[in-house]
Design a protein around this nucleic acid. Structure first.
Lengths: 238, 238
DNA sequence: CTGGCTAATTTCGTATACGTTATATGATTA
DNA sequence: TAATCATATAACGTATACGAAATTAGCCAG
């Protein structure tokens, strides 16, 4: 009897956000988010093997749904697996950060611009609401800043109804998140970002596609510039 | 320290066709390709539930690696899963085809153009060799046309050493493959494609980036146009 | 037909076991 | 001592069996 204890532990942190009321989700699906956040937050270090039995025991699950979650994360680019050696958190590199932002710059500005033209009122409300939550979380130094930041950027793209574009954008944002957290969170990056977000939202709500395109590109470019600075400085650090 | 040496790393590449001789792969990894080919070839119809026990029995494996393979394919966009209802082959739509090609047009021409500038001799040989194989397979009506076509397009991008771009391009090509097979394979599309491929390769080998960019874009645009025609005609069919 | 109950099928997760591979440890030899 | 070989331990990947929960299908009353 494994489920008898029912330690609440790690899952509740995830269940709080998103989770539309009547959405059914599988365990491995939720595990993916839990493990993903452990990786993004640095709780699991890169390049060290992820011990499946141990981690599964920690999370009070068996290793089969955990493996499925890890497989998902491998496709998401956060972990790599080597046959018979297991899963490892992917190492980070300046080159990868460059590539991530290069791709985001190619996709996100236009996607957001097109989406703003077709967003209905519900989607507009959602974007507004998410940004408010994000600002509140950032002000309070909450650990949900990362996910909410992602939710905001996605909310700008999603109304475009292009599933693939939205999905790729989401993945790129997840990968970017690691770099932002590691290198930028300790300084006031999200404070400058807050102003940029506000301007973007305003143009987006006004359906000013051209401005949205420009502002989103600028926003990404600024973050990338900050990252470049960080990389140039703390170059050799682990 | 484990990773200090970083040997040449024989096994960092993605799923390639000509497997390097002593590459170790897990069962679920190979299963992914098997099931993927079943989907691409239409052996598994869209929108009908994939019976895990039955399929696993057919393939003489247990359902654990099969589920992992299906999870991979879900991230690849070929199947969808609904909690407690299982996995389904994703339905096809003209809208999705449009989006796939729109994204490919945004990424592939430039990626191929940049890659041709830095491709070493080995990569150039590989591109040449793969195209020869593709032409041979197309001439003989072999079922390997799809994978070889994909291999050729990837060979044009891979030397750019941008892992993410290569990976996304690969996925988009896999998704596109389904549409090409279903709607275009029965007509002589790969015959016109053959000439375009030849021109692309020539410019690519000559490191003529601008021409590569243009020709790849044209090539994709032609295929998309053909697809549009097909959709416009056989509109209401399955 | 509609709505709801029951039964059957299937997925999802757990527990357990086992072969194979990798890694660490210790012994042997040059 | 250093390098190589051999052994032991640990971990991964897969198979099997079982149970619980959910979905689907069938049936029946109104």
């Amino acid at each position: 009897m494994a489920g008898s204890g029912d330690r609440p532990s790690l899952f509740d942190s995830m269940n709080r956000m998103a989770a539309s009321p009547l959405e059914v989700r599988t365990l491995s699906d939720r595990l993916m988010e839990v493990v993903r956040d452990m990786i993004l937050s640095g709780a699991i270090a890169p390049d060290v093997p992820i011990r499946q039995d141990a981690l599964a025991a920690d999370l009070n699950v068996s290793k089969i749904p955990l493996r499925e979650a890890l497989v998902r994360l491998e496709q998401d680019g956060l972990v790599v697996s080597h046959a018979n050696r297991g899963f490892f958190v992917r190492g980070m590199s300046a080159a990868e950060a460059e590539e991530i932002y290069e791709l985001r710059l190619k996709l996100e500005p236009e996607a957001a611009a097109e989406a703003c033209l077709v967003a209905d009122e519900a989607r507009q409300d959602e974007a507004r609401r998410v940004l408010a939550q994000l600002n509140a979380a950032a002000a309070g130094g909450m650990p949900t800043v990362g996910p909410l930041n992602r939710a905001f950027h996605i909310a700008l793209v999603q109304p475009g109804k292009r599933a693939l574009t939205t999905e790729i954008t989401t993945r790129l944002h997840v990968m970017a998140d690691r770099y932002v957290r590691k290198h930028l969170e300790h300084k006031g990056r999200h404070l400058t970002a807050e102003a940029e977000h506000q301007d973007i939202l305003q143009a987006w709500l006004a359906r000013d596609a051209a401005t949205v395109r420009r502002l989103v590109a600028d926003h990404l470019q600024h973050t990338l510039s900050d990252l470049r600075e960080e990389f140039a400085q703390g170059d050799g650090q682990g």
